[in-house]
Design a protein around this nucleic acid. Structure first.
Lengths: 96, 96
DNA sequence: TCCCTTATTAGGCAACAAGCGAATTATATC
DNA sequence: GATATAATTCGCTTGTTGCCTAATAAGGGA
């Protein structure tokens, strides 16, 4: 789970996620949306992949990336759990 | 908002949040839960403070930390927006 | 005021992350 | 096999993060 948080920590990677929300895309097409070198973007994609947030499937010479929504939901659930905004009572046991 | 994600990227800082969910605590008491030097923990608290996730109020010689739930909720909303799990249709326009 | 407690800031170092250009791998086509 | 295209890995530089010890600031009580 730690990998997910680290992956989300970089603005470019969050933008990649937002981009993939609109549909799957090959790495090269993703790259056109950013002003960074291709190897740098490839590194970001690797981080997202290792966190399990995206998967890349080879189609011919391209590698098409798509979101792993299941893990995204899990991450959100974990975050909700961390903050416990969802659950029953407000977190105030005693505190004099 | 970037600061929030960066703040959440470190396990210790997430544990601090989880701890504060159970009630406000002075910095020193927080420190007893971790096996790190006090200045290091103070640094983590600074990161959380600058992200707006916690606030520290001086009570005598202590500085009592508490969560800023409002910003936590905003962060969650932003995350939901990023993933759009909440909204209407699944993000699959075409894809042959 | 002087001392003790609590917490932060300052300084320094090792480890990591982000970026790039060049080289490499993988697939498709001729 | 040779060539072209797409994406990654490699080697490197630069800047940041995380950790520590030592020093400093802020308060409370004798």
């Amino acid at each position: 789970m730690n990998l997910v948080y680290e992956a989300l920590a970089h603005p470019t990677r969050r933008q990649i996620i937002a981009l993939l929300r609109q549909g799957d895309r090959p790495a090269g097409e993703i790259a056109t949306h950013f002003d960074i070198a291709k190897p740098t973007l490839s590194g970001h994609l690797r981080v997202l992949r290792e966190a399990g947030l995206v998967i890349g499937e080879r189609h011919g010479t391209s590698i098409v990336y798509s979101l792993q929504l299941s893990l995204l939901e899990e991450s959100l659930a974990a975050l909700l759990d961390l903050f416990k905004i969802d659950s029953a009572k407000p977190p105030e046991p005693d505190r004099s």
